[in-house]
Structures are given as structure tokens and as C-alpha cells.
Simulated assay, not measured.
Amino acid sequence: MESEIDINGDSDLLQMLIDADPVDVIVLVDFLTDSGKGRLAMASEVREALESAKKKSKFSRGVLLLMIRELQHFGGNSFVNLFRRNGVPYAEIVADVLSHVGGTGGKNEPVASMELKVLEKLLSDAWEKMSAQEQADFSKGFQNETGPLGVSYAAIQAAIRRGGPAAIQAALLATGAFARLAMGGALAAGTSLVAGRAAGLAFGPIGVALSGIAGAHTLTSQAYRVTVPCVVQIAYIRQKSTLVTCPSCEVPTPKTSKFCSECGAGLAL
């Protein structure tokens, strides 16, 4: 029964996943279940329920409750050990992941802000390992209202912190790196978005740098192999939910805008 599934008050996360594109939720299923192969800390009936929903590309409220509870259990495992039975709220998972990747957050900092800091840290570590040409190529994927940001990670970092398109691009690249590690380069339905939007960056030399950083942050325990990429994907889902696609030019624009920033067309509110 749904009423029996305790998700530690994460009703906001539940609603966000209810509203999400199923293809994006499928990515979470793959990270949680190790692409359907299963994990030591996950019961077989849970894996089967998630895989069944994935095949149908339909996620009921009950399945999403189950998914959140499993993520919370993996979060609890990262704090103590692999067999901890009690889950932890998503905010604690994000704070733990941020600390794990070497970032810092403030007390009572909003979850969305911590998610963006995780993206910043993963990409900044990869940036330091790129050549000058790779940095230039990487920078082309990030723009603000006036155009390309230029070869400057400080400008990219500032754009990510504002959320929206730059944060979505960062999350796509990071998710692609995790998928490359976890799935041997074979993309799930959701992560195939990376191939369409950032294939050259995700699977060229830049992708190698990102994958190296992703691996360094996930190989310490099975729990972090789940929580780190799941936080990245949830950050993507959250930022994507703040945008609307312009019906005229198909450029993503903040939902709070009355007009498209690219072509000036009016947006339905």
C-alpha cells in the first residue's frame, strides 16, 4: 500500500518526479538498479517493480514512492554501511554528496542550491584536467543572454549557479559521464539525450575527463555509485522543470518569462 511507504517527508521530490518526463525518470531507475542487473542492497521485488515501470515508461505514484524510498536507503548506507535499514531525507543525501565530491554548503541551504554546487564541483574538477583546446570546446556549450560565455570557467560557474539552461547543460554532461561509467558507454533511454545535445563533449576527450572525475567520486562505495549520479539527474529534472520551450523557435526559456529571449515570441502563461 502507498500509505505504508514512508519517504521521510520528501513530498516535493515526489511531486517533481510525478511531473517529470518519464524518459528522465528512467535514468534514475538505471542508476538505482545498475541498469537492471540489481544491487546487493536492493530486494529483487523492488528491482522488478522499477524495471516493469521502466519498460512501460509509466511511473505510478506507488512506484515513485518506492523509488524515493530506495534512494533514501542508499543515502543512509553512505552515512554508515551498506546494510543500514533506515533511509534519510533527500536533503541529507544532497548535502552528503556535496561533501563527498569536495564541495561545501551552508547550514539549511536549499536543496536546489546544493544540487547546483554538486554540478559546479564535478565540472570544475574536470575543467582542470582539460587541455586549453578542450576547455575552449567545452565552453562553447554554455551561453548567457548575450551569447557564448568565452573560455572562462568562472563565467560558466556563475551561469550554472543561476540555474536554467547552463545548469541543464552541466547536468547532461555529468549524467553522460556517469552513464558511460555505469553502462560501459551504452546509454539508457534518458541519457541518450546527451548523444543528441552534447555528443561531442560527452564522448570525446572532454567526456573522458568527466568520466574520470565521475569515477573518482563513485568508486568508494556502492552507495555513492547510486547517490552521486542520482543527485545529478534529479538536478537536471529540477532545472528542466523551470523552463518552457518556445513554440516559435524551440529555445528553452524560463517559465517566468512572458516573451522568448531568443525570438521575442509571446509565451503562454
Rank of each mutant, 00 (worst) to 15 (best):
M1R: 09
I5Q: 03
S11M: 10
L17I: 06
D21V: 04
D21S: 12
L28A: 02
D30S: 08
L32D: 00
T33E: 00
T33G: 05
S35T: 05
R39F: 07
A41F: 14
A53V: 01
K54H: 02
F59V: 01
L66H: 05
L66N: 05
L66Q: 10
L66G: 12
I68E: 11
E70D: 01
H73V: 15
L82Y: 10
R84F: 07
N86W: 11
V88E: 12
G103K: 01
K107N: 13
L116I: 08
V118P: 13
L119N: 08
K129F: 04
K129E: 14
G141P: 09
E145K: 15
T146G: 02
T146Q: 07
G147N: 03
G150P: 06
A159W: 01
A159T: 03
A159L: 01
A166T: 06
A170C: 01
A171D: 02
G176A: 02
A179P: 03
A179S: 11
A179W: 06
G185F: 04
A186P: 07
A188C: 15
A189H: 15
G196D: 06
A198N: 05
A199D: 14
F203Y: 14
G204P: 05
G204V: 02
P205L: 01
A209F: 04
L210A: 06
A216K: 09
H217D: 08
A223L: 00
Y224V: 08
V228D: 01
Q233H: 09
K240G: 12
S241V: 13
S241C: 07
S248C: 11
S257M: 14
S257H: 15
F259D: 04
L267Q: 01
A268D: 15
L269Q: 15
